[in-house]
């Protein structure tokens, strides 16, 4: 709901993607990830990387809600001089890496996961990818790397909402059989409903893997989830809600809360 207001205020893009992964972020930060908002630089914290950096509004909202910074700062989202830019920025407390160009995050997470193993730390690396960024070859370079080096402390979560920038995944560049691809690369694969908090929680709590594999959670989601006129509609990758749409959207989400 905060993301809706933030994007509405500055007529910003990407509200659909914020809604598709809002449940994943909420579960991740509400008890799964070992982070301390009072100590964002705590060395043994889990590392959370939003590879799909265009979902920044949702990430900032969650970070503010759990206490990394004052929620009032969300009002500056995309504003002149604000640190809260439209793609994830590491200048914001709680954000590990700036992202926005797709296909970077899984490699970064491989690096932080490898570092933890070499430093004998139990910290885990979580990375949230979009389905669309699995078009990027760099994603698959990292997908080869992680199982080879037995990065059991790495968890990739794919927000599989089925829509990319200019069309449906299956029409633009098909990913199926998606789970089989990851299995073939050597990953432990979990397929869940990405809006079911119990399933999300169970999946994210199931690492590290006993067999030393990295884990990929393919989370089936709905772009624009919870707002009837935004669900599965490509235009909400770009549009922001006007006053009337915002009121209706908040009412729909409020009734579900």
């Amino acid at each position: 709901m905060l993301s809706l207001e933030m994007t509405h205020r500055m007529n910003a893009s990407h509200v659909g993607t914020c809604l598709s992964m809002a449940d994943i972020l909420a579960v991740l930060y509400a008890g799964v990830a070992r982070v301390d908002p009072a100590r964002p630089d705590w060395s043994d914290r889990d590392r959370l990387i939003l590879s799909k950096g265009h979902g920044a509004a949702a990430l900032y909202a969650v970070l503010a809600r759990v206490g990394f910074f004052d929620e009032a700062r969300l009002e500056s989202f995309c504003g002149d001089g604000s640190l809260l830019m439209g793609h994830a920025s590491h200048q914001v407390p709680g954000v590990e890496f700036s992202t926005g160009s797709l296909g970077h995050g899984l490699s970064l997470a491989c690096g932080t996961a490898l570092a933890a193993l070499r430093q004998a730390s139990r910290r885990r690396s979580f990375v949230i990818l979009s389905d669309g960024e699995c078009d990027e070859g760099s994603t698959w370079e990292a997908a080869l790397f992680a199982p080879h080096h037995r990065l059991e402390n790495l968890i990739a979560i794919i927000d599989y909402n089925g829509l990319q920038s200019f069309g449906r995944i299956g029409d633009v560049l098909g990913l199926e059989p998606f789970a089989d691809k990851w299995r073939a690369f050597g990953w432990r694969v979990l397929e869940i409903d990405g809006h079911d908090h119990c399933q999300i929680r169970a999946a994210l709590d199931s690492v590290p893997d006993d067999e030393g594999r990295p884990t990929v959670v393919i989370a089936r989601t709905v772009k624009g989830k919870g707002v009837s006129f935004m669900e599965n509609a490509l235009e909400w990758h770009y549009r922001a809600a006007d006053e009337d749409q915002l009121r209706r959207a908040l009412a729909e989400l409020g009734s579900q809360a």
């Binding site: 690096g111 570092a115 430093q119």
Partner: peptide
């Protein structure tokens, strides 16, 4: 380079 950045970020 991504792995290098992740390692460097970790010390």
């Amino acid at each position: 380079i991504g792995v290098a950045a992740g390692l460097a970020h970790s010390g």
